[in-house]
């Protein structure tokens, strides 16, 4: 097993050049997926490109009320940014369900996204929040919606030489609230059997004016269920609206049977978790109990 070349470039352009030069090269952020895959032999990269030392790659930048999160920012650092945690608690909580504290001190949302696991915890929350990411590549930078990155388990839409440099979260809309819930057999150290991210906006009288519902582990990629959002918009999140939302979620779920869960259980949980997440998000949006 040959050891990969190890690069520590100091600019985004150098990262892009190194990745473009070797199709087996892998960017190294937190390494919590990459190193496990390397050590198990599932992945044998010719080179590893550690981009953490590039200025701006680690940390949260505030642009007005919006947030730009460097691709190497560990999940635990998100909690330390009070404004981010207040604006997007669902996203921050989702990122801080991954692995253990030890893992979250290294793991990043960008890595969680680019590992392209359908069960990635932070991704449904990011998709629900309408997050985008900035991709750097041989032809410059482009900004794409987060949900466009994963295309299949373990596969992304990134072209050779491309990597995610930052994740952008918009300003929290007035009356907005978000939440992410997942189902796992254990309380920690587990992979989502199903995950549900919700972001919604309530107007002054509690009517939902917009809603996004995204699901993890019920398909080959994280799914944005537009019908579920529509079922909530215009309602006061009454039981009928929630039931319609849950039904839309179940209809959009197309999970597999595997060691972590069965089709029927995953479908059932998608509905339950989405409903619970809506209620948490609504509370955060200021809904009266």
């Amino acid at each position: 097993m040959p050891s990969p070349a190890f690069h520590v470039p100091d600019s985004v352009e150098d990262v892009v050049a190194l990745l473009a030069a070797d199709p087996t090269a892998r960017p190294l952020g937190g390494g919590t997926d990459l190193i496990v895959q390397m050590r198990s032999g599932r992945l044998v990269p010719g080179s590893v490109v550690d981009f953490k030392r590039i200025a701006g790659m680690t940390g949260v930048r505030h642009e007005g009320d919006a947030f730009v999160i460097g691709a190497a920012t560990p999940c635990t650092a998100l909690k330390a940014d009070a404004a981010l945690a207040a604006a997007w608690p669902g996203v921050v909580e989702a990122a801080n369900l991954i692995g253990s504290v030890q893992v979250r001190n290294r793991a990043t949302m960008a890595g969680n996204l680019c590992n392209a696991s359908p069960a990635a915890d932070s991704v449904p929350a990011l998709v629900a929040a309408g997050a985008t990411c900035v991709v750097a590549g041989p032809s410059g930078k482009r900004e794409v919606p987060v949900q466009d990155i994963p295309v299949a388990p373990g596969k992304t839409s990134l072209a050779p030489g491309e990597f995610v440099v930052e994740i952008c979260l918009p300003a929290k809309p007035a009356g907005g609230g978000d939440a992410y819930l997942r189902s796992t057999p254990r309380t920690e150290m587990d992979i989502a059997v199903v995950g549900a991210g919700v972001s919604l906006v309530l107007d002054a009288d509690g009517t939902c004016t917009s809603a996004r519902v995204a699901l993890g582990a019920v398909g080959p990629t994280v799914v944005l269920v537009e019908e579920a959002g529509k079922a909530l918009v215009g309602t006061k999140l009454d039981d009928d609206a929630l039931a319609a939302m849950s039904q839309a979620v179940q209809a959009a779920s197309n999970p597999i049977d595997d060691k972590r869960g069965s089709v029927s259980y995953r479908k059932a949980m998608a509905g339950v978790l989405a409903r619970r997440a809506v209620l948490v998000a609504a509370t955060r949006a200021g809904a009266k109990a």
Binding site: T32, D50, P74, T76, Q102, N105
Partner: peptide, 21 residues
């Protein structure tokens, strides 16, 4: 990274040293 027996503190943050190159 699933058992924590290798936990060390790296630049002030605890990590699994098996998951650091």
């Amino acid at each position: 990274g699933d058992c924590g027996a290798c936990t060390v503190v790296l630049d002030g943050e605890m990590v699994c040293s098996c998951l650091v190159l």
